[in-house]
Design a binder for these strands. Sequence first.
RNA 1: GGUCCCGUAGUUCAAUGGAUAGAAUAGGAGUUUCCUAAACUCUAGAUGCAAGUUCGAUUCUUGCCGGGACCA
Length: 594
Amino acid sequence: MSVVLKIKEVTAAAINGLYGISLVPGDVLVNATKPEFEGDYTVVLFAFIKQLKKSPDSLGQELGQQILAQNPNLFTAFNVIKGFLNLTVADQYWLQFVNEQSGNKDFGHAKLNGQKVMVEYSSPNTNKPLHLGHLRNNFLGRSIAEILKANGNEVIKTCIVNDRGIHICKSMIAWQLFGNGATPEITHTKGDHFVGDYYVKFNDEYKRQVEELKAKGKLEEEAEKTAPIMLATQQMLLDWEAGKPEVMELWRTMNSWVYAGFDTTYQRIGSDFDKTYYESNTYLLGKDLVETGLAKGVFYQKEDGSVWIDLTADGLDEKLVRRKDGTSVYITQDIGLAEQKQKEFNAGQSIYVVGDEQNYHFKVLKLICQKLGLPSADGIYHLSYGMVELPTGKMKSREGTVVDADDLVEEMVNIARQKTEELGKVKDFTSEELSELYDTIGLGALKFFLLRVDPKKKMVFNPEESIDFHGFTGPFIQYTHARIKSILRKSGSSLQSSVSSLQTSLLPLEKELSIHLEMFPSVLQDAANEHDPSKVAIYVFNLAKTFNSFYTEHSIANAESEEKKILRLQLSQLTANTIKTGMTVLGIKVPERM
RNA sequence: GGUCCCGUAGUUCAAUGGAUAGAAUAGGAGUUUCCUAAACUCUAGAUGCAAGUUCGAUUCUUGCCGGGACCA
């Protein structure tokens, strides 16, 4: 149990004992004590003074004495300032904690809790390569999955590939018109980029045809509807739905090129999935649920035959769930897929990592599922994340400002190589080791940059800042890890040789580091509860910073005494393990040397 | 038109209603005979505006200003 939880418990017990009320530990607010005051943790008393009709000072004094008297081994001192009760935790507590956990590689991991969670992320369209926004999505999804695992959940990672629809047909038509039989192999182009290029060609040609029609005197709206290339595309979509063999063949071929490209990127950035769904298989799902909804009176039919749900009582709109021609809409498919997943995996929670432009969509999705009484309903959670913008504004494909995922990764790795070469610290590495190190650093910088921000908020991606490897960055933390590993290698056996450093007392920086390490498990829990990897990123950064101060101030290998040396080696080892675990749940590797 | 989100140092980000609003970076001044200076230390700098609730508001409420998203 964490010391913060213990403080809440003993405080609640002390208040209940002194004043005969019944608080639970959750009623007690505990904060880290501000550095300018004496103490380690602070109980905020304001919440109780009204109920107990006592002055903050006398409450604090009585409570402090009671807590100390009842827990003589845990606390050594207290002081009261205004409504704040500052407690000093005994050095013994920290020493014992460090001693017990220093060799525990799984420090922070919780035991399996029997809960099952699905995390759906990435979910790309197959007409374009991945861009910066997809990277935020992938890193978030992957990371939240790892964080949930570390907290003892069984996690199933899924992806829904949007592999059908008008956008794919656009690439297909353009390839028929302009491709001359070209393939990714012939042109030496990565498959997803290859297909994406034809999507661009489609748009260029479409624009040209619209202009041509307008020049002939047609109105813009009419020109857009009647441009031959658009008509051909719409026909192709109909042919696809009818299963016309040559269309299906082309569709399969072009999608397979895209998948090959995606696989390369996923492998590079470390994304993987336990189960991939394809929209071409799922887009007909949910139709039977429309009938169910009508039978239950949850949906209603309009005169034209279209089916709706009225959500105005819930502060939302009326929402179409089936068109008058009988075809279903996105929301219906999503309901169907939610049920499909439920049947297949029966997870208690289903997390969707999807951009915040779909906030309304997911609100509606969950509400409809609830009204239909579906088993999947209450477990639906939309992990909504904000768009990634550039310093110049939003990314716009029309203006060519979209940051391509592959290009960006390549650039980050190149910069990692350049900086590493400048520093010249790893000249004895083989070329394989070097290339692995550059990947680790470059990708580490990129992932950390995108994960260090609260997912819910939109963020600005500044290319110049992202390539800075100083300060609040992945490489800063990786460097700290490498430095610790270097010390541990040199100290070799002295860590295992002795168990006890429990007789010593702690210097301020030793204590600060211990306190920081001790809170790691609760940070991981918090990150899982909030679905927020940035909590871990910020924590690991602060841990590294604290260690660096400690490292600069105190010698580890040449400590004042053998006891101190052991203590500091234990602290170093526990810090390295914690950094490694924290970075691993962010999907970031840490090197042994750099 | 309706619904929702966001405004914090020059910039990018923090802060379950709690003490003097924290970091990073950019700026200024320093640290290397000693475990990796991708480091460390010091310094300066911010809550859009106006009310309200509260012992206490960046946080909650309302209005305004500014930015964004979604729904027709």
